[in-house]
């Protein structure tokens, strides 16, 4: 367990009865889960299961319709703007497309949170940027622009930026999306390394089963806005829920049963 575990509450994030709606579509329906300090928590789910929406709620980019999200003992939805800014300095996020600022070099990207939130000297910041880039295996790339990097390097640079303020927790949105298996495996190793060396908590949204095997301490599988199963990977795999079985066996959805149903799906319901 990392240094963060010295605080009393074993849970860093507590989500209770979270409901998220876009218009009249319910995306998340009664999500309750806890993320413990120092663990790698994986949110699994198919496309459209609401996993990215859940992540965006956890970092406060979206406001839930109902329910509470408690981060380090404080309700995120009830924080003042200043408190939220302070809370956000304790979290980092790796975006799916890395979201590096295209007009800045990699070094400036990593330095940005430090420049804006701390009163450190320029020379100190330079050293910290070097350390963070070294950590993700990108030393010497300070002067490059994001457009000059490969997909995997961009992701790692994004991780270095997320690490800049020494956060307690890092959120990953589809870390291995669009990467080849070797680079993706490297990123998984990096996530594990951060947990071991710094006791970092990670919340990882993914649908890559291979990477779940490596990184996950606990898993939660979302299906149609609800939690289908939650626990360690083995526990989840043993769940009797039919969707869970289908997901892990990678079985495609059944085709529409009868010919009549297929025709109806094309023409709309037939009035009798």
């Amino acid at each position: 367990m990392g240094p963060a575990a010295t605080e009393q509450n074993p849970n860093l994030i507590e989500v209770k009865d979270l409901v998220v709606r876009f218009g009249d579509r319910t995306i998340l329906d009664g999500i309750t889960l806890n993320v413990r300090r120092g663990e790698n928590f994986v949110i699994l789910g198919g496309s459209g299961s609401g996993k990215t929406t859940l992540l965006r709620n956890l970092v406060g980019l979206l406001r839930p319709h109902a329910g509470t999200i408690i981060f380090a003992g404080r309700d995120f939805t009830e924080m003042s703007d200043d408190e939220r800014i302070r809370a956000r300095q304790r979290m980092g996020m790796c975006f799916q497309g890395s979201a590096l600022f295209g007009s800045m070099t990699v070094g400036e990207n990593v330095a940005l949170p430090l420049l804006e939130h701390t009163k450190l000297e320029k020379s100190t910041i330079d050293i910290m940027v070097k350390i963070k880039l070294e950590l993700v295996g990108l030393s010497g790339f300070e002067k490059y622009l994001p457009s000059e990097l490969s997909g995997g390097m961009k992701k790692r640079a994004g991780l270095a930026r997320a690490m800049a303020m020494d956060p307690q927790i890092i959120f990953y949105d589809e870390p291995s999306a669009g990467l080849d298996p070797i680079v993706a495996a490297g990123l998984d190793m990096l996530i594990c390394k951060l947990k071991q060396t710094f006791g970092l908590t990670s919340v990882i949204v993914t649908h890559e089963l291979a990477s779940v095997e490596v990184v996950a301490d606990r898993v939660c599988l979302l299906h149609r806005g609800k939690i289908a199963a939650m626990g360690t990977l083995d526990e989840v795999k043993r769940s009797p829920h039919p969707y869970v079985q289908q997901f892990f066996e990678r079985r495609p959805s059944e085709e529409a049963g009868s010919g009549e149903a297929y025709i109806q799906s094309l023409t709309g319901p037939v009035e009798r």
């Binding site: 939220r84 956000r88 996020m93 975006f95 979201a99 600022f101 949170p113 930026r161």
Partner: peptide
């Protein structure tokens, strides 16, 4: 490209 979200998450 989610850069606005990135700013927000950084507390900027």
């Amino acid at each position: 490209s989610e850069e606005i979200d990135a700013l927000e998450v950084m507390g900027l």
